[in-house]
Structures are given as C-alpha cells and as structure tokens.
Design a protein around this nucleic acid. Structure first.
Length: 270
DNA sequence: ATGTCGTGCAAAGCACGA
C-alpha cells in the first residue's frame, strides 16, 4: 500500500501533472493541499476515472485540502475541532478520513508570514488545534489504530531541514515556538508518540541529498538546491511499524509547470 | 530583501499570498 502527501499549489493548474503522476506512481491514498478549488471546480470526475474516490474542502482562491483514495474513504471530517479563525473565518486547511483502516489527516498549516505577525500567532494556534485533535482521536481510537497527520506543516523541524540555516535567521519555519508546537503535537499522547518520518531525498534506494520537499519558485530555488523539508508525516507506532520506505518524489518538481512542493511518499506493508 | 508562480477582479494590469 502506498500513501502520499502533496501540496499541489492549485489543482486546476496542476491537473495534467496530477493525473500523470497518479498513473505513474499509483498511490492508494493521496492527501492534497492548496487545491485552490471550490466544490464545483474540484475535478472529482477525472479522479474517479482513475479509480479514486475523493473528499475535498475548499471555497475558492486560497487554501483547500483533499483526500483521494482507491482503498475506501470513510469517516470524512472537514476541519479541526476548535480550529482557530483568521480574519473571522475558519479556513480550508484540514480534512481527515479513514482509508483501509488508516486514520489520516491532510493538513495545510498557515505560513505565518513573519515572526510576530498576527498570521504567525494564527499558525501557532492552528498547530495547537492539530495537537488537540490528535489527543481527542487517540482517546477515542486507542494507540493500536494506525494514525497519521500528513501535509504541509510550513515548519522545518531541524536546522538541517533547510538549505542554509544562516539564511533563515529570524525567519518563520525554523523558529523555536513553531518547532515546539510540532514537538508538542508529536508528544501530545506520551504513551503513543507521533514519529516524524524522515524520507530519502528521492525514489532511489540510496540518496545522500537532504530530503527537501519544497523549493522556492523565485530565485530558481530548485535549480540551486535551495530547499526545505516542510511537508511532514507524523505517524503513531501502529502506522510507523508498517512503513517500509519513505521518500520524496523530487522528479515531480522537475520540468514544465511543477508545484513548488514535491510529494512525500510512504510505502507500507499490506 | 526577491528576480516566480497562481488566482481573481475587472479587464491584458494589478493586488495578494506563498
């Protein structure tokens, strides 16, 4: 079984590449972010033609999250319990579902813009709502149920997760409170920690490069190797023990018209 | 700090977000 998470940066702009990628890599579940789609514009028909059911949460120009599955799509949850608002609205940043016995979330954590910006505070509150969601579901489902929080966290957990930590002095994505908020999610249920699965940098069996998942469109970030590992898979023991391989599909970042993110792929035992 | 994208509005140029 194969599951993946991918920030598409517009499903409309990415649809040809998305469909090609689904046929090439054959994921059983895809957790998608930044669809920038409405329920009307979500391409459910094209996805169904490839064998995927899908559940989408999106209202327009920004954000938007979805789960695609060809192994069942049940218990769909749109939004987090207690999800904070920004500018008076709950944004389309979280959708959960159960797929073939796995409880999975597709998350698009707010960017934060600048440390100290109100959007940064919103980011921290959102991450705390993710933590609370994990605690609540852990209480209901128990530690034996495979559980994963996947998506664009907009946080690089370690200094080595960015191309040059000196270039990020004072920046978001690497600050202490953001990293502490991610750690708090992982440790929310101390008897059932969530592991930050470290992927390989590519599908190759051995790849010594850093496993970045995002490269800026500006300044030729990909071409210059200026990347960040900000798309994460936080999974409990029950799911982690089924992971045979985790890797970044950096080939999806190449060529004409890519997203600025590459998919993070998990290959599981059946 | 931004040299690139993507979106939507109102209209082929901008504002906004990342």
């Amino acid at each position: 079984m194969r599951i993946a998470t991918w920030n598409l940066n517009s499903v409309k702009a990415r649809l040809p590449r998305l469909l090609t990628w689904l046929e090439l890599r054959q994921p059983d579940v895809l957790l998608a972010q930044e669809t920038k789609a409405t329920e009307q514009s979500w391409p459910a028909g094209e996805l169904r033609n490839l064998g995927y059911e899908s559940a989408h949460l999106g209202t327009g120009r920004w954000n938007g999250v979805a789960i695609l599955s060809r192994v069942g799509l049940d218990e769909v949850t749109r939004g987090l319990t207690g999800q904070p608002e920004f500018d008076g609205a709950v944004e389309d940043r979280a959708i959960g579902a159960s797929c073939a016995g796995l409880r999975l979330w597709s998350l698009y954590v707010p960017n934060g813009r600048q440390v100290g910006h109100q959007h940064f505070d919103y980011k921290l509150r959102f991450l705390d709502a993710v933590r609370a969601q994990a605690v609540a579901e852990r209480a209901v489902r128990g530690p034996a149920a495979p559980y994963g929080l996947l998506g664009d966290f907009n946080v690089a957990p370690f200094d080595s997760d960015v191309w040059d930590i000196a270039a990020f002095d004072g920046a978001t994505h690497v600050s202490t409170p953001e990293r502490a908020a991610v750690t708090a999610i992982q440790q929310a249920s101390p008897d059932s920690p969530l592991h930050d699965l470290m992927p390989r940098a590519s599908i190759d069996a051995v790849d010594a490069r850093p496993p970045y998942t995002f490269w800026e469109m500006r300044m030729l970030g990909f071409q210059k190797g200026r990347g960040m590992r900000i798309d994460l898979a936080l999974v409990n023991d029950a799911l982690a023990q089924r992971v045979e391989s985790a890797w970044v599909d950096r080939d999806a970042r190449r060529g004409e018209g890519p997203s600025d993110h590459a998919p993070l792929v998990l290959d599981l035992t059946d």
